[in-house]
Write a protein that binds this DNA or RNA. Structure first.
Lengths: 350, 350
DNA sequence: CTGAAAGCGCTTACAG
DNA sequence: CTGAAAGCGCTTACAG
């Protein structure tokens, strides 16, 4: 933070200093001032020091937009997530933000609330701002191809809509889902419900696939009625979960495909006075703070959104460096945080 | 999202279209193209339509940085918060982001992790980008004066460091703290600890003041050893809380000054097998998701960070419109979400 | 070692 | 009704 000018009467200057003002005050040309300030090109050391001194005295901060316009290269990246209020996306943004700062990039952030229309608008805003690249948790396939067409590097994170066409950083959803489902099967559960939001995106598709694979591996037939689509919203999902748990033949365990759905199931179980894990076992995909605060703790696939964000920005900056390098999909494995929310099914207990 | 050009071989153009290209393709001057596209100034309707058609066909997206450079006005705002991983700040960012989009502003977001150095760097980055204004949860008094000196409108949110010198949107911390403390006193508690992170910022200062006022109002003497400074980090705070609750003369109730501290106290109580509210009553300042998920739910002052963010951006845009209007501090009141974590102290029970 | 000139992509008085 | 010119704040070959 540089010192600004203060007039003798204590008032502030009306306009921000420009390089022209710095140059005039230092008695050099704008070219020389620019070279002195950026460090590009030669300037006699005493002149350089004088120019820098003057700039500091004037509180001069170079106009990054003008610089970028001239250089045709920006130091901003665009980040587009689905819901900042969800700790998963917030963590992702936190990881990206931290790395961006470390690498001297600035972050434009937008939240599309899951809407493809808003996503498209945000993408256009990023193009207008000529960001160096975009990181997105996509809600449509269009955003990837649109940005590619506009020659803006993109990395899809969490979900992948343009596999092979653009870089991506995703979690190994299938394996993680399979692992936790198997743990439930191993405990003796047979009626394991999958509560999910949608099954077309890679996250939903792969979590569903992992769940199915675990059943297949164990040679256990799967009751398709136990795969329930519960929507996006906690309240709507809570109602669906309530119905599910009130069935005449209810599941003995639930695998919630994300943290919002896990919350919905948790609330529905409380409404029905179902004890966990006594009457119901619960596992979640995506480990968020409350899961280790409640009793019993909720066993969950821990994705580390911060690491996901960091990997995404690394990937993006690599892509900016090497636009023609082969497209890459980075697969991050996830761990399972085992807590107290699972136990053998009640019917198996003596 | 506009259609881009696709060459006959399916490849994309190498460079992004500029207004010059649009103008040439449409057979008009750049001035006319600009007028047609922006809607400023007159253009014969058929010409206007043709230009717009051409622009769409070329996938033309005007360069916002060039436009802003020319107009000396930007449509971006800078937002600087302390910790995106904390749901309070994430909610704040979500509220701001949503309103920004609605008003056709774009948001630059940075996270200073509570460091004044990082805060200063971020402020300078915002100045470099010539944002139209900044919203900040300040960690020092310098950021407000620095940005003011740079002629950039600022609104402080949540905390206030430059009262009177710049706009602010804050919660009525003193009243809310007083209310919850009084509730505890009314239940019969006398040994009510305040677990707090710091007491110099307005948030800490006013929450402490409200707590003291409630004691004074009730004519109950305050044991100063019950005001404990527990630091920023959940783990460090958990250790402090553990010590507090293990004292020979422990408190019968704890007022945690924010959500992180409430989490620390909650964990410490669990470690010590203290039942809530049987052996310990707990109230929190700042209501976050887990507090309604645990059993019993945690009684908390609910701040509505999204509303706080929305108020902040309103205030900022007003300020941008009227730079010389009197400085304003908006005080938002908070409600108390009463849940099951409080009860009369054990010693009062029969 | 330094400065004049050109130009990044826009918009906007101004002249006709 | 439209276009030529200037200029926003920078940087960078290039000439000297």
């Amino acid at each position: 933070m540089k010192q600004g000018r203060t007039a003798p009467d204590g008032s502030y200057p009306t306009r921000r200093a420009t390089i022209r003002e710095v140059a005039e005050t230092a008695g050099v040309s704008r070219s020389t001032a620019s070279r002195a300030l950026t460090g590009n090109g030669y300037v006699a050391p005493p002149v350089r020091d004088r120019v820098r001194e003057v700039a500091r005295g004037l509180g001069y901060v170079p106009d990054a937009t003008a610089r970028h316009l001239r250089q045709q290269a920006s130091r901003s990246i665009g980040v587009l997530v689905s819901d900042l209020s969800n700790p998963f996306y917030a963590g992702l943004a936190a990881g990206i933000s931290q790395q961006a700062r470390r690498r001297q990039y600035t972050m434009m952030l937008a939240d599309d609330g899951g809407s493809p229309t808003v996503e498209a608008e945000a993408a256009e805003a990023f193009v207008a701002l000529r960001v160096a690249g975009v990181i997105v948790t996509p809600v449509s396939a269009e955003i990837g191809s649109y940005l590619a067409r506009q020659r803006i590097p993109v990395v899809e994170v969490d979900r992948q809509f343009s596999a092979g066409a653009c870089d991506a950083v995703v979690v190994d959803n299938a394996n993680a889902a399979r692992t936790v489902t198997r743990q439930l099967l191993d405990l003796g559960h047979r009626r394991i419900a999958l509560v999910i939001d949608e099954m077309h995106w890679t996250t939903g598709r792969d979590r569903l696939a992992g769940y199915r694979t675990a059943f297949a591996d164990a040679g256990v037939p799967l009751d398709e009625s136990l795969v329930v689509t519960a929507g996006w919203d906690v309240d709507a999902a809570r109602i669906e979960a309530h119905k599910l748990l009130s069935r005449s033949e209810p599941p003995t365990a639930v695998f919630a495909a994300n943290n919002v759905l896990a919350e919905a199931v948790w609330r529905a179980a409380a409404e029905l006075d179902l004890t966990i894990p006594g009457q119901l076992s619960l596992v979640s995909f995506d480990d968020v703070a409350w899961m280790s605060l409640v009793r019993p703790g909720v066993t969950a696939v821990a994705q580390d959104p911060v690491a996901l964000g960091e990997a995404a920005i690394s990937q993006l900056l690599d892509r900016i460096q090497a636009p023609l390098a082969p497209v890459r999909t980075v697969l991050l494995s996830a761990t399972v945080a085992s807590r107290g929310s699972t136990a053998p099914p009640a019917t198996n207990r003596r």
